[in-house]
Amino acid sequence: MDIVNALALFANFVAVPATAYGAQLALGALGVTLIFGILRFANFSHGELMSFGAMATILVTWTLQDLGIGIAPFPTALLALPVGILASIAVSLATNRMVFRFYQRRRANPIVFAIVSVGVMFVMAGLIRIIIGPDDQSFADGERFLITAFEFQKATGLKEGIAIKQTQVITVVVALVVVAALFWFLRKTRAGKAMRAFSDEEDLALLSGVNPDRVVQIAWIITATLACIAGTLYGLDKTYKPFIFLQILLPIFAATIVGGIGQPVGAILGGFVIAYSEVMVTYAFKKVITYLSPTDWAPEGLVQLLSTDYKFAVSFIILVAVLLIRPTGIIRGKVI
């Protein structure tokens, strides 16, 4: 029986990575949920928007690295992030002006919006692959670890170490800051209140003099900011590869629906629910159980519910369960 080591092991392989991943999903899902609340459609181009933001950040990072400008021990990407955010805002405002506004004025069917967003997705996917290419890009620099497993072992004298990557800490800190700023904006500012009013009851908001074009523009600005940050953090933490962003769309949508669609708090909750379940279901608990067992008994198999190959299945299964049991999501959102 060795509870401390079991906890350390669990933290190292489940809690730490899942928290970072959850923060990334939450940022992505916040964007999807905002657009859903304001424009009322499932935005299939969101993954590519994240990819675009990350790409812009990477390009600026490379330039800065060439010039020798950095903020060591932090990754240079943090310095480049504002430029990436500006680029994503420009792109999303341009697509809004050229594509989505037309349908918004006609109050088009949500499915029409969704199909149009597929078109935007195609265009963005093409642009990204032409500009940066379809391959893996590495752009992380600075200190790799805040605490390595070895340092942790030495400091605490435990058998198991907890390694914390710097990118994981940055992910969580940045996500916290961004989410706090977003909630302050939505609760306290005039524009934020207008957005919430518009999302709750469009016609009433219009009657009260809310300018719909402005609300939609602000929604896109926030969404683009969140998407760029989410994409960059994901790229820093794992790797930047254009096609991943089509796959990450599923867990993001799942997080949005699980949390309650159109609900910012729900999106964050959903992001962590999905991330934790994905990591826990695909983690082999053999060693943890061995530590916890009173004698030297060890389970025979790996005690892994699903192989890591099927991590996408986890978000899908949670999605289906939520759709069947509580279609409105954890926090009662809209039913599309």
Binding site: A42, P110, I111, A254, F312, S315, L319, L323, P327, I336
Partner: peptide, 19 residues
């Protein structure tokens, strides 16, 4: 359920089939 859910559910099932 309504339309968008079907879209997201089918997106999921297709990824699972490929997996």
């Amino acid at each position: 359920l309504r339309a968008d859910y079907l879209a997201i559910a089918t997106l999921g099932i297709s990824e699972i089939i490929i997996a």
